[in-house]
Amino acid sequence: MILGIESIRHKSAKRDPIRDDEGTAFIKLARRVLAQAPGLRAITYDTALRGVHRAPLIADGLVVFTTQHSGLAPESLHRYEYDACRHDLYVAEGRLCERRVTVDGVTHYTPLPVEELECRKGKRVRYYHRVTIQCPEEIHTEHIRVDETEEDRQIDPSTGRQRFNRTEHLRQVPPGTHAGRRLKGFRQDSESQHSRFDQSYPHKRVPAYGANAALLIYIGYAWLSNSVARAMIDFTPAA
């Protein structure tokens, strides 16, 4: 079912100031759907969503899953020091890892098992990973924030940038895990809608001039697609 439609700009903001970029438009659509369907819990999308787009949706209480962008270097998160040991935690490939250095000086980032994605609701929704750190001394359990914090949003005076883009580097559901692979599969049905729309016209060209006219055609396509889906749901074969 198509629940919302929005046009986005494909040019610079200066040349098309009326429309939003894809990520911003998606946030508006998601919040519009959430207002009508408060039971919504998770959203999947492609790599057009970056950390700056995921952060406000996570703050709204949603689990937002996308695949991880390539080329992101591991980021230091925190050093935990206990009575007889210490552990350096990094974020790499969208998940929490422990940084380890071999005797040959080779660095390895060992993923930490996520025991639970914990949601705490209050004035602001917060998400935590409950992780276990395997250690010869003892097994340590820590709760790590996976939503944007006030400290993250502070500007580093040395760089002029946000101190840590947590939602860019650390995911609520890490890609490559069993849960991540399941959520990734849900995205394909939405993508197939776009593919069928493209294939409905010769040479994948919509017979319309301008974004508003093209959007009108897509509204008609969405109406037809949803009508077929409704008919399939209501159809009960005879015994």
Rank of each mutant, 00 (worst) to 15 (best):
A55M: 07
A48D: 09
H87V: 14
R130A: 07
V91F: 01
R86S: 15
V103K: 15
L215D: 02
E93L: 08
Q172A: 04
V125F: 01
Q154I: 02
D234S: 11
I58S: 03
R50V: 10
E93F: 03
E168P: 00
G105E: 08
E98S: 08
S200A: 15
G105W: 11
Y82G: 14
D21F: 03
S200V: 00
W223D: 04
R171P: 00
A222I: 03
P174I: 00
L112R: 12
V103G: 01
G71R: 11
A48G: 14
G180V: 00
H53A: 07
V52L: 12
Y209S: 09
T149E: 08
L170G: 04
T132W: 10
Q172M: 10
Y109T: 08
P113H: 12
P38I: 06
E75M: 13
S12R: 09
T66L: 00
R41V: 08
E151V: 04
R182I: 02
R130S: 05
Y109I: 03
Q193E: 12
A239V: 08
Y221A: 11
G71I: 09
Q199L: 11
R153T: 11
P174C: 02
F235H: 15
T141N: 06
A231F: 12
V91N: 06
E191T: 02
L216S: 09
D156F: 06
I27Q: 13
